[in-house]
Nucleic acid binder design. Structure first.
Lengths: 215, 215
DNA sequence: ACCTGAACACCGTTCAAGT
DNA sequence: ACCTGAACACCGTTCAAGT
């Protein structure tokens, strides 16, 4: 009955029908996480999440203030995964700033393409009326931090140029994020295979690198 | 009673309580257009749109197959406005490709910031389960076409470089779109005034231009 | 402390019926 | 052809009540 060995797999969490309890909070999040990718955030209902977790439709209110708070928790977890990947990209080539930036971009795109609904939830602006605790805000900020370090270090090394680190970071982040959203959206861009996705990312990133390289 | 003089104003359509009929289709779209910016696409209900248009809650089904089809119509109208702005940017400096590209980026950002919920509807991926007519797809494509011409002409003139026009267009579009979505989202970027928005756009675009300029 | 069931106000959608 | 009203299955949320 030990299913925990599967739990750490990074991509694609399959749905289960039964949930070990005593930790309903996490059971609900697991059920929601999995239903989200099937239905999208707009159609993700608290009642169905509760049903998949095997409890009544009012039980979730013991653990989340309301539907928006539950979506926020899912989004925060998503930013946690993003942060992890960005830090892995940073660690993958400690002495090569360009390779770090490229790895970060590739990982960002891959995570988004593998979890499109999570990404839309995190960045689609559905979290507007979230309680202003700033938890979500802070989680997003931590993903940003790794990119900041990569570029700041690169500038200190004389690899990257630009007037200030903040603008360069914003440029890089916006480019990768925009490419991501275009691929996820109704837009034309439509890479069929993971290899094509990487190739596309490389081409686009190359223009960015030429733009921010120190000269 | 002539209110049509206000109708052509490009930004911020105020809500009315009464609607001239005989053209319920457009009355519904106007009501929806206006409610959208107040509530967001997720909470925009057909019933409330109908109420604002002064008809029963089933009347909209005479004009739209369902809720998704109505949202699609709104998104298509949004792409129409975007297309217009892109073409104006193209016409604003026929002999200066860089100025055209910059004007397009500024207009894109301004439209998005003035109509955030429209932008989220158009690009947020809420149109997934839309009928595959391709109407929405085609409308998006037309906005894209102006940018394509700007960059293709710029490359023919030797102003822009890059291996192929498609990749350069994708890079430029992704950068501006990403900056837009970051500004609209929960993210840190938060320009207070229109002037700050323009300044931010200029800084980011400058890096892009350095990256795609012919050398 | 944690969960349930009934209840309320709201949805989207369908359908028979009115003019 | 165009609109209405009742009806159905679904929501989110609240609250008294159970253990």
């Amino acid at each position: 009955m030990n299913e925990d060995s599967q739990k750490s797999a990074n991509l694609q969490l399959p749905c289960r029908d039964s949930y070990h309890h005593g930790d309903l909070h996490n059971s609900l999040l697991e059920a929601a996480d999995c239903l989200l990718e099937q239905t999208g955030a707009a159609k993700l209902s608290l009642r169905e999440v509760a049903k998949h977790a095997g409890v009544s439709h009012t039980a979730p209110y013991r653990h989340f203030k309301n539907r928006a708070a539950m979506l926020e928790a899912i989004a925060i977890a998503g930013f946690g995964r993003l942060k992890l990947l960005m830090e892995q990209a940073e660690a993958s080539a400690p002495n090569d700033s360009e390779a770090q930036l490229l790895a970060a971009g590739l990982a960002y795109l891959q995570l988004a393409v593998n979890n499109p609904e999570h990404t839309r939830l995190m960045f689609g602006g559905m979290m507007k009326d979230v309680p202003e605790d700033g938890h979500l805000y802070a989680a997003a900020e931590e993903s940003y931090a790794a990119i900041y370090r990569i570029i700041d270090t690169g500038r200190a090394r004389g690899v990257f140029g630009g007037s200030d680190t903040d603008t360069v970071v914003l440029t890089a982040w916006a480019l990768v994020h925009g490419l991501t959203m275009l691929i996820l959206g109704t837009q034309k861009v439509n890479p069929a295979t993971p290899a094509e996705l990487d190739e596309l990312t490389l081409s686009v990133t190359e223009h960015l690198l030429q733009g921010i390289r120190a000269r």
